[in-house]
Design a binder for these strands. Structure first.
Lengths: 337, 337
DNA sequence: AATATATGCTTAAACGTTTAAATATAAAAA
DNA sequence: TTTTTATATTTAAACGTTTAAGCATATATT
């Protein structure tokens, strides 16, 4: 790899000190009253040598890398991919680059990723925290590192977070199905202590309670796993036990997709055999045999808010915000062809 | 943000020079013959102060950031998201972190992203080059920056690249449809000079030629756009003009998805009205009314190979590799429920 | 006793920037 | 003329590491 040209090379070529070059390269020639001729010469030399500033050196000196770290569960998951894209764009506009890492919903991996990003001196972090990472998040608080949690948070940690009104998400979905006349409404959720899930479960149970329907019978809390097989086994057990299910709500995108694979494989018809409401939407929802209903998260807005909040923090704000955005129930009609 | 603890803080606390601390922190205490007692004291102090190395300072000194830059068209696109994930994992194993940027298939944006990553001194780059970025890629060659192109390349630039045998991809798809008895086989592709597309088109036309079928009539080369509306307009014009199409091949994932939206909206039946072969697969393909056939790219293998090639380059290899991997035609049966 | 070797540690430069402070010169004001 | 002010530039330290080179001291070898 070619030796990169530095500010020193330009200084030598023009015959001035590095300070002047630095001033000019940063557009501070007026403020620092650099001679007009000198400015021109420096500009020309920079051009000729094809100078590119070394952001690493700059970062070290300034104590800021203009980089933000993004910890997602899995960048390959379209929901997180979409989120990452919005973060990227917003960060870019604000002059930041994003470094990312996938935690795989695993606390050990999460710790690794977090350490890596911190060692790389990211100025701030956006974290989708996995189960069992309270300590890690508390560590960020202790370090006074600017960061905001997204999608989930911990009740025991007072920090910035932006989440969906998860309760409302499943609540409106359940109510909708109840009003439609269903009584045997199942919810498939992950067995976890993470609030986004417990809230989604609560939204469901409360809606059922209110309607005077048993709210425990059709609740499937299954263990998280990366393997579809594991999901399938748990789900089959549940489904076989309750062959009278009239409607199914899925508590997140992954569960929705997995459920659809199962449903498809087992020749269960939507609608007909069961009604279905998923989470987050996406291409598979649109292109399924019939368009599928789902709980929509305002992901664009959330992404924008997250970055805005973080940049405020990085600019010195000390306000702690807990932002909760509203979901929207998107009901799709049966296709007539 | 708390002042980070540095090697100097540890040195001061223990009462030794920073050099010793550095040696110990890098596990070179044997080689550099640091006293046993001192090692212990340094370790303890590092623990107590919760020392985390500053990778930025390290990078500046060593001239290597242990970072690789990834330029994709759009991280929100599942194909690229999946690829990014593989790259991330492989890079992580090799001790690298990945910084990414989306080029949006736009040369201006690509230049920005590339510059940003270069200024951040990435040790190497993985680039999915957009149209009109030959100059940028040539720039990398001139700088002797280790990089490898993925998915596409430029005939005029001799550099490392890993691509699919694109010709073969559409060729086997077309042959399959011909053998099935179709003669009016359409290909929807992007109008671009990028080889991955031109090769996919060539694979299609050659297969048709060989079968003695007119190979221009049913070829739709449409302009790339981020808007579905634009796609729809071009596609509709094409479809209306050729209402006798028997089968449709889509030249990449985005086109496949867009086509499916159109097909669905216009009540065209797969199979029945037309046969369909898409590109890259994914959840929408599996969950469509009937499972859809597609040309599969060995993306895992490609991702692994890309990172392997790049790490070799970063470790000083000067070999230029052009790797081409085989696609696989995945034919799906009609669902019987 | 003189020399060589081993052990343990320090010094200081370097990486490429930024920037406060100092310096030098010219022009304006006293 | 001397002093002040404005203009143009340099100096040098700092950011947190790594590492070659040097310096003591103790022990082993002649």
């Amino acid at each position: 790899m070619e030796k990169k040209v530095s500010i020193t090379d330009i200084a030598r070529k023009v015959g001035v000190s590095v300070a002047l070059v630095s001033y000019v390269m940063n557009g501070r020639e007026k403020e620092k009253r650099v001679g007009k001729e000198t400015v021109k010469k420096i500009r020309r030399a920079a051009e000729e040598l094809n100078y590119q500033p070394n952001q690493i050196a700059r970062s070290l000196r300034l104590g800021s890398t203009k980089t933000i770290g993004l910890v997602v569960a899995d960048i390959a998951n379209p929901f997180f991919g979409q989120f990452a894209r919005i973060v990227e764009d917003e960060a870019f506009k604000a002059g930041y680059t994003v470094v990312f890492g996938s935690s795989d919903e695993d606390d050990i991996k999460s710790a690794f990723v977090l350490d890596t990003l911190l060692n790389r001196q990211v100025d701030g972090l956006i974290v989708i925290p996995s189960e069992g990472t309270v300590k890690q998040i508390n560590g960020l608080v202790r370090k006074k590192k600017p960061f905001v949690l997204f999608d989930r948070y911990f009740k025991e940690v007072n920090c910035n977070h932006i989440i969906l009104d998860n309760y409302k998400g499943t609540n409106i979905a359940t109510r909708y199905l109840v009003e439609k006349g269903h009584r045997k409404i199942a919810l498939v959720a992950y067995k976890t202590s993470l609030v986004h899930m417990t809230e989604r479960i609560r939204g469901y149970t409360e809606a059922l309670k209110e309607a005077g329907i048993d709210h425990t019978k059709y609740l499937a809390e299954i263990k998280f796993s990366h393997s579809y097989k594991d999901f399938e086994n748990s789900f089959r057990a549940f489904f076989n036990k309750h062959s009278d299910i009239e409607a199914l709500i899925c508590a997140n995108n992954g569960l929705s997709i997995n459920s659809l694979y199962y449903i498809r494989q087992n020749c269960i018809r939507i609608p007909g055999d069961i009604d279905f409401i998923g989470f987050d939407g996406g291409e598979p929802f649109d292109l399924y045999s019939t368009p599928l209903s789902f709980v929509r998260q305002p992901i664009e807005e959330m992404g924008r808010e997250v970055v805005k909040l973080l940049t405020d923090l990085m600019n010195g704000s000390t306000k702690v915000s807990h932002i909760m955005l509203d979901p929207e129930l998107v009901i799709r009609e049966i296709r007539n062809c």
